[in-house]
């Protein structure tokens, strides 16, 4: 191939990558604009204060009310519950796989955990209806177990593969020299893990947790199936809740085009977007705080 042809190829590929890059940005921008546009349309009809402080979500009643609070509380409850379960379990599993498991166990555990990620969310939701829910109901003496705890347990299961896999990579990537330094001053395995290895892996572990949180906040099908979807204001883990995602999924199908209710669903989607964004920014902040101690 002569130089001229090669340069031509170069130019073509450059154009191709530029176009695809622009396309992605355009699509993202379009989605964002649509979200903002419809949210604004909603706020022309309903005051933002009522929206944010209202404690009732009842768009189809004769006296329609659009209070997002119960939905936000539901989403938060399920997400926090899921994280309380998934974070210790995830870091523990990651630490075990990377520091304690022998080679053979490791070669079995890693793919097994990764396979969890391949289970479709409908299947997990189904598991919630027939196994976890009844289990919770039996333990707590309630008529059914379709509540926030059920959702939290299932979301934890869904977030685990991400958290374990990424946290394990982070722990594995901690230079052996840190561990040796720790053993060198007389630390045992546990002390080395807790005081040196995990802190050194913290940026990666936090990233893992944030990806897990992102998944939990945005997950729809599982919570839709497992949490009961009662739109009354949530009272706790043992009560039915209705998350933002479930609300959108349930109501989007039956709402008439460009009504207040229609716009309202975009508004709550925008709030969901802000929540995910906040989680990501918080994660970024912590990652940077830990990076400070690492070599540039």
């Amino acid at each position: 191939m002569n130089t001229r042809v090669r340069e031509r190829y170069d130019a073509v590929f450059k154009l191709l990558f530029k176009t695809t890059g622009m396309l992605v940005i355009a699509v993202l921008g379009g989605i964002f604009l649509m979200l903002v546009w419809n949210t604004v349309a909603f706020f022309i009809k309903v005051s933002p204060v009522d929206f944010i402080t209202g404690t009732q979500w009842n768009p189809s009643g004769s006296q329609a009310s659009y209070g997002i609070l119960p939905l936000v509380v539901s989403t938060t409850l399920v997400t926090i519950g899921a994280m309380l379960i998934a974070i210790p379990l995830g870091i523990g599993t990651a630490a075990f796989i990377s520091e304690y498991a022998g080679k053979r166990l490791k070669n079995f555990l890693k793919p097994a955990v990764e396979m969890l990620a391949a289970i479709p969310s409908v299947a997990i939701g189904f598991l919630g209806i027939v196994v976890v829910g009844p289990g919770i109901a039996a333990l707590t003496g309630q008529p059914n177990g379709l509540n926030a705890l059920n959702g939290a347990v299932l979301l934890a299961v869904m977030a685990l593969p991400t958290i374990v896999t990424i946290a394990e990579d982070a722990i594995n990537a901690v230079p052996a020299s840190y561990r040796e330094a720790s053993y060198g001053v007389g630390a045992n395995r546990w002390q080395t893990l807790v005081f040196v290895t995990i802190p050194a892996a913290a940026p990666g572990i936090i990233a893992a947790i944030m990806l897990g949180v992102g998944r939990a906040i945005g997950e729809t099908m599982t919570v839709l199936m497992a949490t009961g979807n009662v739109s009354a204001f949530p009272k706790g883990f043992f009560h039915s809740v209705r998350t933002i995602t479930a609300t959108i999924a349930i109501e989007m199908g039956e709402v008439p085009y460009q009504t207040t209710h229609y716009f309202a669903l975009f508004a709550i989607a925008a709030v969901l977007f802000l929540m995910t964004l906040a989680a990501n920014l918080a994660g970024e902040y912590f990652v940077n705080r830990f990076r400070k101690y690492h070599a540039a």
């Binding site: 020299s177 040796e180 330094a181 001053v185 007389g186 802190p199 050194a200 101690y293």
Partner: peptide, 19 residues
């Protein structure tokens, strides 16, 4: 761990903890 406390080590590449 007692052995390692009595016999300290300085490594080839300086390896301070990220602390």
């Amino acid at each position: 761990t007692q052995v390692r406390k009595r016999i300290g080590m300085v490594f080839q590449k300086a390896n301070p903890f990220p602390k």
